[in-house]
Design a protein around this nucleic acid. Structure first.
Length: 260
DNA sequence: ACTCGGATTCTCT
DNA sequence: GAGAATCCGAGTA
């Protein structure tokens, strides 16, 4: 992969608006804090407010692009910038969303989706991987956003190790896809399902460092059977850490929209 | 109790 | 592009 990656300052005051280099990379510079004591470490940016997530998932999803998913562990911090998401609509919507885990109502598996906004819904898939959603809307309404891909920001070496890849593996191989993302950040259902992502003490947080993504690529969702035609997948245009078909290639359908 | 299939990923052709 | 790996929740009986 190219080495001329664009560097963006982590400080919200100095954060630039989202522009992507030729290789589609938006990596932050690796911070010295990455290797410090996790108890005294300063995490990048600030926690998002609950109100950010108290909205319909099709609105939250595009706004989530460019935000940071931060994983604190005793061994250090792993973080990535969210570059691809999908919205899943709660059963109160008309028309309903048959692809959503919540579409048949509350169950022992999906109860987090019906709880307050800003919490992690982690489920296992194919007996092999985990996928992570963030709950949206007010308590009782089950909209959510699936995190599909991150661009590595901190702890890329650790992410590579978690993924069984060599040190220095391509950035796009680390967290490109919902299963890969959880593997890279050591996110599991037993440990993280139901966690509040908006608490400073949480091992899993969503933060905003001021990085702004002005436009999103809107496409059909990937890998689902029902309601596959609905345009509820959102990605950062030009970012090569995004999964799925690329614009201009066979199999791509979608459009650019500005994020409000 | 039993069956079915999945918001995936990797490997091989 | 196809097929395998592999578990558990959900639906049906």
């Amino acid at each position: 992969m190219g080495r001329a990656r664009r560097v963006v300052d982590a400080d919200p005051e100095n954060a630039a608006c989202g522009c992507f280099g030729e290789n589609g990379s938006i990596s932050l510079r690796t911070m010295a804090a990455e290797r410090s004591d996790p108890k005294t470490i300063r995490l990048p940016g600030r926690l998002l407010k609950r109100s950010f997530f108290e909205a319909p998932p099709e609105q939250v999803a595009p706004r989530l692009l460019g935000k940071l998913l931060v994983r604190r562990t005793p061994a250090g911090v792993i973080a990535g910038r969210i570059v691809e998401v999908e919205a899943y609509l709660g059963p109160h919507n008309d028309p309903p969303d048959p692809a959503a885990h919540s579409h048949r109502g509350r169950t022992p598996r999906n109860w987090v989706l019906f709880g307050p906004a800003g919490h992690a819904y982690v489920y296992s898939i194919y007996g092999l991987y985990y996928c992570m959603n963030i709950s949206c809307e007010e308590e009782g309404q089950a909209g959510s956003v699936l995190l599909r891909a991150l661009e590595p920001v901190m702890g890329a070496d650790r992410m590579a190790r978690n993924r069984g890849l060599a040190q220095g593996a391509a950035a796009r191989a680390l967290a490109c896809g919902p299963g890969c993302l959880c593997q890279a950040l050591e996110i599991t259902r037993p440990e993280h399902n139901g966690l509040d992502l908006l608490k400073a003490a949480s091992p899993l947080q969503v933060r905003d460092d001021g990085f702004c993504v002005p436009e999103a690529l809107v496409t059909p969702r990937i890998g689902i059977r029902h309601a596959a035609e609905r345009l509820l997948r959102f990605a950062v245009p030009g970012c090569n850490c995004v999964s799925g078909p690329k614009p201009g290639t066979k199999g791509f359908s979608g459009a650019r929209v500005s994020i409000g």
